[in-house]
Design a protein around this nucleic acid. Structure first.
Length: 777
DNA sequence: ACTAATAACATTTTT
DNA sequence: TGTTATTAGT
């Protein structure tokens, strides 16, 4: 292996990659090869002889981490990339905290609370304090607590801070500190951490355990961070804690694409990076390889209106391209029509595939109109956003059982399922159990274990119901560490009564429940299989599964990956993506920029950056549209064009006068397309994928019965795989494992597996459904 | 304990 | 307008 791959970089990318002697900041304009620099730099470090486990690479999404790993593996080979500490901030810190949990007062099996758990717990606390939910809105309280944690303010700091108290009093919520305190106590009681705690507790771990901090600071010889403009204060501080002599850290980002400050991201982290890290080198990547000159020019002129930024000159040497086209239409409906019409035209005349087109909007509510318009023309589309798979009630119920089994003191999980399916344990009993737990400062499970001792006062009948529930969970706990996640999960679904619940009647929604349950089980099955295949059978337990799903993002979706469909999504979720043609819809004042964000310059600048992100997603064509009226909250709203439109240099934008009236209802070729069946449209529900949940099917598949846990497939000579028909003796290439020969085949359909001997990696059994195999010969 | 009716609400949301 | 959460009623 040589350093030849460095030749694939341009000059500025290359210097950024090759500087490894100290801290550096890489300001990477949109489309300038930011991720490329990161991946090549990691590959370079590996080539220099750094051990994979001494490199820490942090991203914001699982998808980004996965893609980076894949790219590194192609550069240096999978075996040399193994052991890299690469993942999201949360997953890496979770990994550290699981090891060190005792030092921060948790046990290693702690639960990760989802935002919904947080909200529910806050509601309980409000009730206990006798506070009115109208004065103390749970969402607002949760946001305050989250804000505090991201600023590394513990509840003790919070209640001791007079300024904060004044501010809360001014907002008529003087008791936020008290709620924060109770919230933390209850989390501890339940052995649970929320997303913010994963950061805060990592910080506290390092702060109060010098040795531990040093251990990690020394272990990580080089730290790399992607999308640094999106880091919050906590993340930034933890990076500082991990500083070791040499300060070898490289952060990459684009201040112009900072669009998450409303969630606590501090743009200052990147703006002031070079001041905080003494001697930090600054590299700028200014050549855009993605877009035409018009698109880059338009984006540049827009962003130059922001005061707060690191000046840079992004340029493109691609073709000039056509200017941005702006359409002003009368209504939101017409906007839908004109956009879908253009999509149709681009597809028919320019031969643009649908998956190279995206409709971007500021708010999710705008999606509906486009959905309707596209469906009318039978254009396939997918929508990102909305409810994720794990937000479904039935899925959350199952996961609550899992959580309780792994961490029986998980109060929120307990609340959710103690009486579901119905067991005659009502709200009153529930409240009593929790009250005793809080009173005695123990977990809910302790109360179930020793109800009398702890003074739980319930009737004999109620007690026996609780005992029954306790016995069931205890049964599961007994096998928790032996059975694999799938086997146990399957048992839980049956023995808890959830299975019966889903199959009780024949309503359409129960059918959906059944599908979701089986999809969840499928996901667990593949999780276990993949762990087994990769030799991690010891990490295929329920706890491992839970830990992984808790931090899974839903943005990446393998199911519709590669399908030829138009993408509909918010501008926020489009960050990091690119399309040949991009439609930015709803370019009106009060919508984009959003009315809520027009109170301060800072907020307006963030909206402008958001628009910048939208434009720079386009490779060739960028269409803007703006309606004069639209329905909002049930009534007609008259709108003015967005102020941002005027900020774009006239050379790069053109107003298209064509109204939608003409030529609209005449489809290409005069076909009356409105009668075409709305086929092939998929709502992608931001659902969960990757190794844990990749089941590529929505087909109804019966849940295997209790005893039919694993079907041993008969020996076969050939099988259908994702890549085609595969047979014994076949030569294949695997993305990570390289070349190999098929030794044997077993199972069918979703459980079809191939035993393959790889030239460099030895023998492996792979699930055909997931293994990315290329067939040779 | 479940259903039906009604009130409240509604930017964006990588984990 | 459309959804979601709470509440009242059986």
């Amino acid at each position: 292996m040589t350093l030849d791959f460095l030749n694939e970089l341009n000059a500025s990318q290359r210097v950024a990659v090759e500087y490894v002697d100290g801290p550096s900041l890489v300001i990477a304009g949109a489309g300038s090869g930011k991720t490329r620099v990161l991946t090549y730099k990691i590959a370079y470090l590996l080539e220099l002889g750094l051990k994979p486990w001494s490199i820490l690479a942090l991203t914001f999404t699982n998808k980004a981490a996965r893609e980076m790993r894949e790219r590194i593996e192609t550069l240096v080979g999978p075996e040399r990339a193994r052991g890299l500490w690469m993942g999201t901030f949360h997953s890496i810190f979770n990994r550290i905290l699981r090891r060190e949990s005792e030092k921060v007062g948790f046990t290693p099996n702690y639960t990760i609370y989802q935002p919904s758990d947080t909200k529910s717990l806050i509601k309980s606390i409000l009730k206990e304090l006798g506070l009115d939910e109208k004065e103390y809105k749970p969402g607002t309280v949760a946001a305050r607590i989250s804000e505090a944690k991201n600023a590394l303010v513990t509840w003790r700091d919070y209640v001791n801070d007079g300024e904060t108290y004044k501010r809360d009093t001014y907002c008529k919520m003087p008791l936020i500190g008290e709620i924060y305190k109770r919230y933390c106590e209850r989390c501890r009681q339940a052995n649970a951490m929320d997303f913010d705690d994963l950061l805060l507790n990592t910080y506290l771990l390092f702060k109060y355990n010098g040795e531990t901090r040093q251990k990690y600071a020394k272990a990580f010889r080089f730290i790399l961070v992607d999308e640094y403009q999106d880091t919050n204060f906590a993340q930034h501080q933890i990076m500082l804690q991990l500083r070791d002599e040499g300060n070898r850290i490289c952060v990459v980002g684009d201040d112009a694409q900072s669009i998450y400050s409303f969630r606590g991201a501090k743009i200052d982290n990147i703006l002031k990076f070079t001041h905080q890290y003494e001697g930090a080198r600054l590299f700028k990547l200014e050549q855009n390889y993605r877009s035409t000159q018009s698109i880059v020019g338009a984006a540049n002129s827009l962003i130059s209106c922001n005061e707060e930024q690191i000046r840079k000159e992004v340029f493109s040497e691609n073709e000039p391209g056509q200017p941005l086209l702006l359409n002003v239409v009368y209504s939101d409906v017409e906007e839908g029509e004109i956009v879908s019409h253009r999509i149709q035209t681009l597809h028919a005349t320019m031969r643009l595939p649908y998956n190279q087109m995206a409709v971007l909007y500021r708010t999710n509510a705008q999606s509906r109109i486009f959905e309707e318009a596209l469906r009318k023309k039978a254009i396939p589309y997918r929508i990102y956003g909305g409810r994720s798979f794990y937000d479904r009630k039935e899925v959350r119920d199952v996961l609550a059982y899992f959580r309780l089994i792994v961490n029986p003191n998980d109060e929120e999980a307990f609340k959710r399922i103690v009486n579901y399916p119905t067991r005659g344990i009502g709200d009153v009993t529930l409240a009593k159990v929790i009250a005793v737990a809080t009173e005695k400062e123990c977990g809910v499970w302790d109360v179930l274990e020793r109800p009398k001792e702890l003074g739980l006062e319930v009737s004999g009948g109620t007690l026996s119901k609780l005992e029954k529930f306790h016995a069931m969970i205890a049964d599961f706990i007994r096998v928790r560490d032996d059975a694999d996640a799938y086997v146990l999960g399957n048992r839980v679904i049956h023995e808890s009564g959830l299975y019966a619940e889903a199959y009780r009647n024949n309503l359409p929604e129960s059918k959906e429940m059944q599908e979701n349950l089986s999809e969840l089980l499928n996901g667990m099955h593949s999780f276990v299989d993949i762990q087994r295949e990769t030799g991690n059978m010891e990490e295929a337990k329920l706890a491992d599964y839970l830990s992984e799903v808790a931090l899974l993002s839903d943005t990446d979706d393998r199911e519709t990956e590669g399908k030829d469909m138009v993408t509909l999504m918010t501008v926020h979720s489009a960050k990091g993506l690119e399309f040949d043609a991009v439609f930015v819809a709803g370019m009106e004042d009060n919508l984009f920029p959003n009315a809520m964000a027009m109170n301060s310059r800072r907020e307006l600048e963030e909206e402008r950056r958001l628009f910048y992100v939208a434009i720079t997603r386009a490779k060739k064509f960028c269409y803007l549209s703006c309606a004069k009226s639209r329905f909002r909250y049930g009534s007609m709203d008259f709108c003015e064009p967005s102020r941002f439109l005027k900020e774009i240099d006239k050379r790069f934008i053109r107003l298209e006068m064509k109204t939608a009236q003409k030529g609209l209802n005449r489809g290409i070729g005069g076909t009356a397309s409105r009668f075409v069946q709305p086929v092939d449209n998929l709502r992608v529900a931001h659902s969960v994928k990757s190794a844990v949940m990749t089941s590529g099917t929505r087909r109804l598949r019966p849940i295997p019965s209790n005893h039919d846990v694993k079907t041993e497939g008969e020996v076969r000579q050939s099988l259908r795989s994702a890549a085609g028909v595969i047979r014994v003796g076949q030569h294949v290439i695997h993305e990570r494992f390289g070349e190999g020969t098929v030794l044997s085949l077993e199972g069918t359909d979703d459980v079809a597996k191939a035993r393959i001997r790889f030239t460099n990696m030895g023998e492996k059994t792979l699930l055909l459904k997931y293994a990315k195999l290329k067939l040779m010969d």
